[in-house]
Amino acid sequence: MDPHLLRTFVAVLDHRSFSGAAAALGYTQSAVSQHIAALEADLGSRLVERRPVAPTPAGARLLEHAPALLLRLDAARADIARLHQTRPTRLTVACSPAALGATVAGALAELRAVTHSLDVEVRVTGRDAVLADVVAGRADLGFVDGAAAPSDPLPMPDLGPMTTLAAAEETLAVLFPRDHPLAERRAVRLSDLTQAQWIDASDTAVPLDRLRAVCRAEGFRPRIRHRGTDLHGLAALTAAGHGLAALPLPVAAALPGIAAVPVSAPRLVHRTELVHPANPTAPARQLVDLLTTRRLAADAGRR
């Protein structure tokens, strides 16, 4: 299966348009049509309905495999490219919004204090985009966040030759409007909130499907969807009564217009994990070492 044809297939269905895919990929519309026809001939099945543009049953099945296949190809290319890097003077870090807290910011400040010439770029994106950027070599390392039992790793897709490291664990909290009946509670149980209205903010807050999984319960119905990485926008929606959301307590407590109430049950933490390739660049390795030292010191202090 030609990966160029597969990329065109994904682009057509992402844009729901042959012309949109052509513009995004820099091809002519005729070339896009030829790519789809060639892929269909290769697989012996019609993959895309033309009017309107939509996947056939076979196309939907292929679409389940395509992103992971293309990501692994990008990972292989990036892995080889890193072998030929000299002494990089740039560090690109990708972070999901709630992962960019005091721990990560402090480690970056400490790194820049000992490497004065290092050019640091921090990109804030959704969790899936963070992982894709690291795997494909567009970022040297990444930080993603989520809810987990204490000391448990976050569930991750198959990332190939990648390494994960716990960077921080913080109290998980629920965001309420200040006039909500539960806003003055010292703590809340998530199981008491399964039938509440929530904000579906999968790139910013803890995803609702993750809350269902850790509570082993249905519910957590979205009242509104928030797309993007704006934590203040999410807080404004909560403050206006559009629904609840779950964030780390230090992040939530700094947001205006809302009450942040810690979660007491189930026993969960908000966990931030660092993801990096098996052969990271020298600046990325330095940051990993700094965070490892910080985490070991924090663990020793709790004993």
Rank of each mutant, 00 (worst) to 15 (best):
R227N: 03
M162H: 03
P150L: 13
P248N: 02
D128Y: 00
P283W: 04
I224Q: 08
V144Q: 01
R178H: 01
A139M: 06
I36Q: 00
L268I: 14
V275I: 12
G241S: 10
V275Y: 00
A254H: 10
R7F: 04
V120G: 03
C95S: 13
F176G: 06
A78Q: 11
P177F: 06
H35N: 13
T115K: 13
F176I: 09
L6R: 15
P207A: 05
A76W: 08
P153C: 11
A217S: 15
L159E: 08
E64T: 14
A136P: 07
P248D: 05
V134T: 05
C95N: 08
R302Q: 13
G219F: 04
A235D: 03
D42W: 09
H242N: 09
A68F: 05
E49R: 15
H180V: 11
D289F: 00
A81W: 04
P57H: 03
V188E: 00
L73A: 12
H15I: 04
A41K: 15
W198S: 08
R138Q: 08
L296K: 14
L234P: 05
V114G: 09
A252P: 00
A245D: 01
S30G: 04
L255H: 09
G101M: 12
R271N: 07
A217P: 03
A149D: 04
D119N: 15
V206I: 15
D2K: 15
V48L: 11
A139P: 03
L165D: 01
T86C: 12
R61E: 03
D158C: 11
T229K: 05
A75N: 12
D179F: 01
E169T: 05
R302V: 14
V261M: 06
V174M: 06
H226L: 10
H4F: 14
L63N: 10
R186V: 12
V135F: 00
A167D: 00
T229Q: 05
P250M: 09
V53K: 10
A217T: 12
V288M: 05
E273A: 13
R223V: 01
T125P: 06
P52M: 13
A66K: 09
H35W: 01
D230E: 02
V10G: 07
V174R: 11
R138L: 09
L237I: 10
L231V: 06
R302Y: 03
P277L: 12
W198Q: 07
L208K: 10
P277D: 01
L111M: 06
A300H: 14
R271C: 08
A167P: 00
I80G: 08
L244A: 08
R294L: 13
T281E: 00
A149H: 11
A113Y: 01
M156G: 03
S30L: 04
A236F: 01
H84C: 10
H276N: 06
D42A: 15
D74L: 11
P283D: 02
R212D: 04
E169F: 01
S30M: 03
I199N: 02
A253N: 02
V251K: 03
L172P: 03
A99F: 02
H276R: 15
H276I: 06
L182V: 05
A167C: 02
A183N: 04
A23T: 13
V263G: 06
L159Q: 07
L208V: 12
G137M: 08
G106C: 07
R87E: 05
S45D: 11
Y27L: 15
H84Y: 12
S191A: 15
L73P: 00
T89W: 00
A240G: 08
A24W: 01
P67N: 05
A109K: 14
A41D: 10
